[in-house]
């Protein structure tokens, strides 16, 4: 799967209260949630984001509460992939379980800016940045997780394998 999009950059320790504040958690509707995506980190984010855009962040992205509403809001806002130096563990498994593409890369956040265009080859774990003609290599997913993602998420995987 190949992705190309424009970057929105965030810092370290972006937590799920910033990604989707708890005051909006009285619904599970992805459309409503996406309207408040990243609101407490950048109030204008939803106005700026376009379909296919990419979030690039520092360490420990998605820390805090276990709310799956966070990756759901990001996905529904049109973000095609999140690349961070590292992810908090519950966010990591939630993203995989709902089929939001994520990659871990430590260098990228330091080298690019909001608005830059990057290209991602998910299967190969390769990120290409045309402006400086630079390529970044990331760790591809462990095989176990690839199976979940290629099934289209955890529940489909459970169904396909009849109770795992």
């Amino acid at each position: 799967m190949k992705i190309k999009g424009s970057v929105h950059k965030f810092g370290d320790n972006i937590n799920t209260d910033e990604i989707i504040p708890a005051r909006y958690l009285n619904t599970i509707d992805p459309e409503v949630l996406s309207g408040h995506c990243m609101e407490d980190a950048d109030p204008d984010f939803v106005k700026k984001v376009k379909k296919g855009d990419i979030i690039v962040a520092g360490a420990n992205f998605g820390c805090g509460s276990s709310r799956e509403h966070a990756p759901i809001a990001i996905k529904a806002a049109g973000i095609s992939c999140v690349i961070a130096q590292s992810f908090a563990r519950i966010f990591y498994r939630n993203a995989i379980n709902i089929g939001l593409a994520i990659l871990e890369n430590g260098q990228l956040a330091g080298c690019i800016q909001t608005g830059d265009i990057i290209e991602i080859d998910l299967a190969a774990g390769r990120i290409y940045e045309p402006k400086n003609d630079k390529t970044y290599i990331t760790q591809p997913f462990p095989e176990f997780m690839q199976r979940i993602v290629s099934a289209g998420g955890l529940m489909q995987y459970v169904k396909d394998s009849k109770g795992i």
């Binding site: 805090g64 276990s66 519950i90 379980n97 709902i98 459970v158 795992i164």
Partner: peptide, 28 residues
């Protein structure tokens, strides 16, 4: 819920996961 780790105080392995994980456990 992320604070599910609380029950470790009793010597349990206990951890927070997401809603889809919960759905999977409820099923299997």
């Amino acid at each position: 819920d992320s604070h599910t780790c609380t029950y470790g105080a009793l010597g349990a392995f206990s951890t927070g996961v997401g809603s889809t994980d919960l759905a999977c456990v409820m099923a299997t």
